[in-house]
């Protein structure tokens, strides 16, 4: 049981076997990340290393800094301290090995682009400066759309898609990026049941392909069904590890404090003992 302000050394060890692994094998490691908005700390010395090839949920109460954690780790917002390593290399040099799926509200859906255009954007990094996408790239984008069940909407303007469909397009774009680490900011926010299922299937497929996936997640009820690992945040690092050992009433109490009704806690912990 780690104290939640603990940061550091245990990251460098495999949690289960205590066997040392080299930093090159750690897909995504954050050290002492501190972020403040208007001189108020939102994240306080968070250290974390994502388990390779696992599907991890980032959970915590509102204002716990879950989205901030991803953005700061990627260097998209300024931070006070801390750094991020991707397979042992600084994040700035490894952006291409990471695919980030922002919250749906982060972009202008009225933009003149079709679903396939958006997916193609995921390939721009591979296409490189000045060059236009070729037919091969279009084919690949189409395949990615297919894998999220959106092939029939390829030429639809993105604003005319439903919220769930938009989220799937975002996911298809992340697939097109073909990265090793996927960071997703609330992909399940405001989507329909069918989309939720489709997203889960895609996430599982990614993990089966050996990718490391981190997802900001809100719904505690589904954590156990969807994920193998969790990272609990509450401004600080509360706990991380496999769902069975970490998704406990005690840890949830620590992260959510009084915000989680005791009946809710009971329900979740019962599930944990089952």
């Amino acid at each position: 049981m780690h104290d939640r302000s603990s940061s550091g050394l245990h990251l460098l060890h495999d949690t289960d076997t205590s066997k040392t692994v080299s930093p090159q094998d750690l897909p995504f490691t954050v050290q002492g990340m501190t972020v403040a908005y208007h001189h108020k700390p939102v994240l306080w010395g968070v250290s974390y290393s994502a388990p390779k090839g696992c599907l991890t949920a980032i959970i915590g109460p509102n204002g716990a800094g879950k989205s901030t954690f991803l953005k700061a780790a990627l260097g998209l917002i300024p931070k006070l301290s801390g750094d991020t390593k991707v397979f042992g290399a600084p994040i700035e040099k490894s952006l291409k090995r990471i695919a980030y799926v922002p919250q749906r509200s982060a972009v202008d859906w009225d933009f003149p682009a079709t679903a396939i255009d958006v997916v193609l954007m995921g390939l721009y990094g591979q296409i490189g400066w000045f060059r236009w996408p070729s037919r091969k790239h279009r084919q690949k984008a189409m395949d990615c759309l297919k894998s999220v069940g959106m092939q029939d909407f390829a030429n639809r303007q993105i604003g005319q898609l439903s919220g769930g469909q938009q989220q799937r397009v975002f996911l298809a774009r992340a697939l097109a990026q073909d990265s090793e680490v996927y960071l997703m900011d609330e992909p399940f926010a405001g989507v329909d049941a069918a989309t939720e299922k489709a997203i889960v299937a895609v996430l599982r497929q990614l993990v089966a392909d050996g990718k490391t996936v981190l997802v900001v997640h809100h719904d505690l009820e589904t954590v156990r069904d969807y994920y193998s690992h969790i990272l609990l945040l509450n401004g600080q690092h509360v706990a991380d590890g496999p769902v069975e050992t970490t998704f406990t009433a005690e840890n949830l109490q620590k992260a959510y404090g009084g915000r989680l009704a005791s009946t809710q806690l009971d329900g979740l912990s019962e599930a944990s003992s089952a």
Binding site: S6, S7, G8, L9, Q31, G32, G45, G82
Partner: peptide
């Protein structure tokens, strides 16, 4: 100081 208290290396 917290890192010192936890016996962790200070890297920054």
């Amino acid at each position: 100081l917290l890192a010192i208290a936890h016996d962790e290396p200070v890297l920054e």
